[in-house]
Nucleic acid binder design. Structure first.
Lengths: 249, 249
DNA sequence: ACAAAAGTGTTGCGCGTACACCCATGT
DNA sequence: ACATGGGTGTACGCGCAACACTTTTGT
């Protein structure tokens, strides 16, 4: 710790810390949750799949770095990248998480509607949407980061309006429901979901105009836009798993 | 960003980043929420109150640094500091948050039962428990960190068993309820709170033995210990306030 | 006697769940 | 005609807010 240093910081504090951002980018594609991965072109873990990310620039906040890397390393258009919902997840700082040097990484979670196929950019060999759960072991501690990100997204769907971030500007309630079903991995009751969403003020806002077909079949659905609310009161809890039993007999 | 570098990282990535931890330590004292603050002995902000914290050592994770600083800079005994519940909050990385150099800070939240008065240690002139809300403007961006920490703790009380971290090993349900009341700033209905807690499996575990007096008055209360559960299903929602704001930055 | 805090009982309403049912469109 | 998805209606039951009430201690 910095002890009796009259002015300035302890020089030992200036060990070569590198600061990076890592991104867990989720999207929905054909009703399945996908995550954006890049194939590393450099050692360590050359050829392994990893989360996109990179170093902070000298006068750049971690959030700004995350948005820049999102555009650069994935080849998504600047407009597409700017529309993504970006949120800090947590920071990973284990001394041995990078075998070569000390790297502290601030992880971010990004969400977006059905997105175009990315191209590898920067030092990545390739970039691809991979169905969540189908990815092999990732480089560094990225498996843990991805798991944390998925858990966080699932939890935030319960008590925030985050789900609209997965949807295009105009969407149907069926599409919104599929966000929940894809992330949580459970089917939801359609009528109840509809009522719950519409009963939450500011969650969605109806769009004037004709309905739209969704899956090519069925009755055309009314369109909605994201509202201005940010929190859900009361929350939309995921269905209780069968394992837990309550003793209220 | 690191572009075509055949091996090793881009040298520009090694800008002098310093990595620190900052701590928002809460406790309950006379039924009021208090925060641990230190008075800075060094510039910048010499003499101003601030959150305790310090630099990461070369081979130390942020969590380890947080626990070390907690003991060192506050003068709390090692045993006391080890008992505190410690949890990562988020990372603050604005390039201008420290006027002299680039400092990225990983903030932590710590909770503990009624704690002894701390002594200033390290480079702090003084260390003190300050009633939450009564602190003046803090150094750096610590006002924002403290506000985020308080919001996070309040939210986590709703859906986790975090409240027991504010209590000594053995506590009464009245003491547990005062945790909620102090953090949320609202009174709760005693009978309903009791039923809710006891109906949640694993939240608390009764202790064999005689009851204990709490405030010196009233009927002695049964004692409980923290259970092994970590999450609350269903959550214990705070009473509907007129309105609440969310800060997503 | 009174105050203060623990603990028990009871009632009513709201919301969530689980359905049944009709509507509109494509094949 | 049938499948598919959107949208409406409804009934049951749990959870919880809201009290009223008893018990046990200190002053």
């Amino acid at each position: 710790m910095p002890a009796q240093v009259p002015s300035g910081y302890d020089p030992r504090a200036f060990e070569p810390f590198a600061v990076t951002v890592d991104l867990a980018v989720f999207t929905l594609w054909e009703n399945r949750l996908h995550v954006l991965l890049v194939r590393r072109g450099e050692d360590p873990h050359r050829g392994r799949w990893a989360l996109p990310g990179g170093f902070l620039q000298p006068r750049e906040s971690a959030g700004a770095a995350a948005r820049r890397e999102l555009a650069e390393e994935t080849g998504l258009s600047a407009a597409t990248a700017a529309d993504l919902h970006l949120e800090q997840l947590r920071t990973y700082s284990d001394p041995d998480r990078d075998p070569r040097m000390r790297v502290v990484s601030v992880a971010y979670t990004a969400l977006g509607p059905g997105l175009p196929e990315p191209r590898g950019g920067g030092d990545a060999l390739d970039a691809r949407w991979v169905p969540h759960g189908a990815q092999g072991p990732l480089a560094f501690d990225h498996d843990a980061i991805l798991a944390d990100a998925h858990e966080r997204v699932g939890a935030k769907l319960e008590y925030t309006c985050l789900a609209t971030a997965f949807c295009p500007p105009e969407f149907t309630l069926g599409e919104l429901r599929q966000v929940y079903e894809a992330v949580w991995g459970v089917p939801l009751d359609r009528p109840n979901f509809r009522r719950k969403v519409l009963a939450t003020p500011g969650f969605v806002r109806p769009v004037e105009g004709p309905p739209r077909l969704t899956g090519g079949r069925g009755k055309p659905a009314a369109l909605y836009r994201a509202g201005d609310a940010t929190a859900l009161h009361p929350p939309l809890l995921r269905p209780a798993r069968p394992e837990r039993r309550e003793t209220t007999a």
